[in-house]
Simulated scan of single mutants.
Amino acid sequence: MAGKKKPKYGIGETVVVTIYGTVGTITDIKVMDGIFVYEINHSEGLFLEDTIELLEEYEGQILVQERVELEYKFFFGDIVQVFNYGKELFKIIGIRTEIWRYKEDSWEDIVYELSRVTDGEWLEASEEELILVTPHEETENYAQSVDMLYLGKEIKKTELLPKMKKQNGSEKEEVRLTKEKHEIINGLLDVYNDYKFLYELFEDEEYAEVMNLVLKHLKKIAKSEQGK
């Protein structure tokens, strides 16, 4: 076995796929008909040894690929309250993601576009400014992956794969939701009564929709409490 051929590159090494100029990490090595082929970034495609090169040895033009994982706490149709707007209700009608990249820092901002239920006034707010009153549907948090390519001739290795700041706020979010749950339940009852009055006064079906969503959410909260 001493003469057994070994792969030129190893798992975990950062390489450039020379036919595309993209940078990635070797995640698996396979043997096909006695030839080593390499999996890059867990992708389905496989690459021969002569189509990849170590990043530090590559002298050509580079396209840097970055995948950004985004998770949205709110989604289209959710009814929310906004910081500094009291008990006024807004419906989420749009989501905008702003991706910021600098030499020494990087982050993503998620901005929600809202329409006030009572008069349709437009507003935008960040996730931190929103409190969920009732979701439009029984859905999990919406997640999305965004692939981006950067073109550059002389990019330092430390700049090629910027560290993504993944903020795992699940524990913080759980504390926040627990603290607000009692307030939300009381607020939901007030909201239902207010919109029942508006519906009886104007007979606008949008008010009835909010009432139904509030009742649906109250039932969901009651069911979750019973399951504990």
Rank of each mutant, 00 (worst) to 15 (best):
Y38N: 00
Y20A: 03
T25E: 13
I29L: 05
K30P: 08
L55Y: 14
I52Q: 00
L46P: 05
D33Q: 06
I40G: 04
E49V: 09
G45I: 11
T27E: 00
L55R: 13
G45E: 12
T22Y: 03
S43G: 15
L55G: 11
G45F: 11
T22D: 01
D28T: 03
K30C: 14
N41Y: 09
I26K: 05
F36P: 01
L55A: 15
V31M: 15
T25F: 14
E39R: 08
M32S: 15
T51L: 06
G24A: 06
L46R: 06
E44A: 15
L48S: 14
F47A: 02
E44R: 08
F47E: 00
D33L: 07
F36E: 00
I40S: 01
G45A: 15
H42D: 11
I19C: 13
L46H: 07
N41A: 13
I29F: 05
T51R: 07
G21T: 04
T25C: 14
D33M: 07
D50R: 05
I40P: 02
T25Y: 12
I52M: 01
K30A: 14
Y38P: 01
I35Q: 08
V37H: 01
G24M: 04
L46V: 11
D33I: 03
F47R: 00
H42Q: 09
F36N: 02
T51H: 07
L55P: 09
G34F: 11
Y20L: 08
I35G: 02
T27V: 04
G21Y: 03
Y20Q: 00
T51S: 13
I26H: 06
D50T: 06
D50I: 05
